[in-house]
Design a protein around this nucleic acid. Structure first.
Length: 314
DNA sequence: GCCCAGGTGCGGC
DNA sequence: GCCGCACATGGG
């Protein structure tokens, strides 16, 4: 009989000077269901519960069940050189200052299914509400514990299909969209590996709902989020209301005149599909192959200006 | 109560 | 194609 919870093996990953800021990375709103406990961040990578903390140029990691170093590095995208992100980005002062200010904010390689569900749910919800909804769904998942800290794994597509709604009407039609996506994955009508190896344009077009094709609930912005955060499309540049505000303020030349005029009028109506494509094309040409990494800084910056009290953003 | 939140689908012009 | 609205739901 064990009298106390056993300690998971502690791994140490040397970062070799590669910038990594866990607070920016996990607090930026790109991923959900990770939480900070003291100096440690707790969440899951695949089937494992994970604790990680920075220690100088090292990263301390505890996993249960254990993961290889490569699996952790892959999740954190440590194979992407930050110096390349910087050098391949535009040289205007604001972009440069963003990457300096948020140095070490890395775009994670999330699990695609969880990422898809996250952004299907996200439409027109606050970050707090998204977190809450995902947490409720994950109550139907397997429980994992590392060093006495527990969490629920997010249910996969097959497990999700066996779930009951927490309560009637919960998430409305979004619940149906998630279910349909799960079915497509189970049937093989949607294949993340194919999307990962396809070009950005191909993958985007096959995800977006347009004239009966694509996936219900996946518009242009959700598609960009899934591609950037889980399918290795670093040039994807999701444009939500915050990023649009940031672009209007700092890069008005990139925003087609028609959009600029309409936004100045009063409250922001949404972009049409055609407008989104045009703006997206402009910003991807400008920000380059790692545009998504700058997008996340821009998102954080635009939100910080408006909400300076957010926990990890100040 | 009212407004806003990492948008999207739909029906009417 | 574009516009306006419904959609859920928690927090300020």
């Amino acid at each position: 009989m064990e009298t106390k919870s056993r300690d998971a093996v502690k791994q140490v990953i040397n970062l070799k000077g590669e910038p990594l800021d866990l607070d920016y990375t996990f607090g930026s709103g790109q991923i959900f269901l990770w939480r900070k406990i003291g100096d440690w961040w707790l969440g899951n990578i695949g089937p494992s519960a994970v604790l990680m903390a920075k220690d100088g140029d090292d990263l301390a990691v505890r996993c249960e069940p254990p993961l290889s170093t490569v699996e952790v590095e892959r999740f954190l995208a440590l194979d992407v050189c930050y110096s390349e992100v910087t050098s391949k980005g535009p040289k205007d002062p604001f972009s440069v200052s963003l990457l300096e200010r948020y140095a070490g904010l890395r775009i994670l390689r999330q699990e695609p299914w969880f990422c898809l569900v996250t952004y299907l749910v996200s439409a027109s919800l606050s970050i707090e509400a998204i977190e809450k909804a995902l947490g409720r769904i994950s109550e139907g998942g397997l429980r994992r514990t590392v060093d006495g800290h527990s969490l629920n794994l997010f249910p996969g597509p097959a497990a999700f299909l066996n779930l009951k709604r927490p309560r009637r009407g919960y998430l409305g039609r979004k619940w149906t969209y998630i279910r349909e996506a799960a079915r497509k994955l189970e049937r093989g009508d949607m294949d993340f590996q194919q999307l990962r190896s396809a070009s950005y344009e191909e993958a985007w077009s096959s995800l977006v709902r347009d004239r009966g094709n694509g996936t219900m609930g996946v518009g242009p912005k959700v598609a960009d989020c899934v591609l950037l955060f889980s399918l290795d499309k670093a040039e994807a540049f999701p444009i939500d209301r915050w990023v649009l505000r940031g672009l209007l303020e700092h890069y008005p030349k990139l925003v087609p005149l028609r959009i600029r005029d309409r936004m100045e009028g009063s409250k922001g109506s949404n972009l049409t599909l055609v407008e989104y494509r045009e703006l997206s094309s402009n910003v991807r040409a400008y920000f380059g192959p790692f545009g998504g990494w700058i997008q996340e800084c821009l998102f954080l910056d635009a939100r910080t200006v408006s909400r300076p009290t957010d926990p990890w953003v100040a």
